[in-house]
């Protein structure tokens, strides 16, 4: 799955390289900057992956945590080992979190690598107009990846909870992805404006703030608080469900 994620920046970079010119203002943001600076491949790829591809991979990983073991039948052997239900849940969530971090970092690294090999690397002009050198720019890429990792923590908790509800991993995976898409749609509807700050996808695109000089930490902080809330609520639900669950598969 990480390989699939790494394929996104490669696809973007090769497509841009093969086409003669990119008309400014069309396609994903930053796309027209790639030919001048390869580092923008990473930024563009992360931007493109946020709405669907990243949630999709998180859905697969988080939805599989408990339901996958249950469908294989290995859950009962882990529990009689005994792994301890709370301990198993924590380990599984830690695994999902590790993937949340690995996924955007993979996109960033692959993007930087393919960008550096196909395009020139140079000083980067930030959204605030300041110019930073490539090492500083690479740090900003890591910051974006960290921002996305935090953004996905809430969705992982939702996936973990859904995974305790079923023995069909595909069901939990699909449900997790659907939840993330539904949340993004709700975030688009002005009629639901009162709801927007509570949606876990609300700050997903706020990572542009780390591309300013000085870095604006507001959205990073709000996002972290919101995600922590989702982790607490859905972690508690997953706990309540899993410790009382009859393991019959």
């Amino acid at each position: 799955m990480l390989a699939a994620l790494a394929a996104i920046p490669v696809l973007i970079a090769v497509a841009v390289r093969l086409s003669s010119t990119v008309p400014p203002g069309r396609g994903p943001a930053f796309l027209d900057r790639i030919t001048q600076n390869g580092l923008f491949v990473a930024v563009t790829a992360m931007l493109v992956a946020v709405p669907l591809f990243l949630p999709l991979t998180i859905g697969v990983v988080a939805g599989d945590t408990i339901a996958g073991e249950a469908s294989l039948g290995t859950l009962r052997y882990l529990l009689v080992a005994p792994a301890g239900r709370v301990r198993l849940l924590l380990v599984k969530y830690a695994g999902a979190l590790a993937f949340c971090l690995a996924a955007p970092i993979t996109v960033a690294l692959a993007g930087a690598a393919i960008g550096a090999s196909l395009f020139p690397i140079g000083p980067v002009t930030l959204l605030s107009g300041d110019v930073v050198q490539p090492p500083e720019a690479a740090l900003r890429l890591v910051l974006i990846a960290a921002y996305l990792a935090v953004s996905l923590a809430g969705l992982s908790a939702i996936g973990l909870f859904l995974s305790t509800l079923t023995v069909v991993p595909v069901g939990a995976m699909a449900a997790t992805v659907v939840v993330s898409v539904a949340s993004q749609i709700a975030d688009q509807l002005p009629q639901l404006e009162w709801l927007h700050p509570w949606l876990f996808t609300h700050y997903w695109f706020g990572f542009a703030d780390v591309l300013r000089q000085p870095v604006l930490w507001d959205s990073f902080a709000s996002n972290a608080v919101l995600q922590a809330g989702y982790v607490a609520v859905f972690g508690a639900l997953a706990y309540a469900r899993f410790v009382t669950k009859d393991v019959l598969s």
Binding site: V80, D246, V247, L248
Partner: peptide, 9 residues
């Protein structure tokens, strides 16, 4: 057996 092993309540 599941109840003996604590898999089911």
């Amino acid at each position: 057996i599941r109840m003996l092993l604590g898999l089911a309540a």
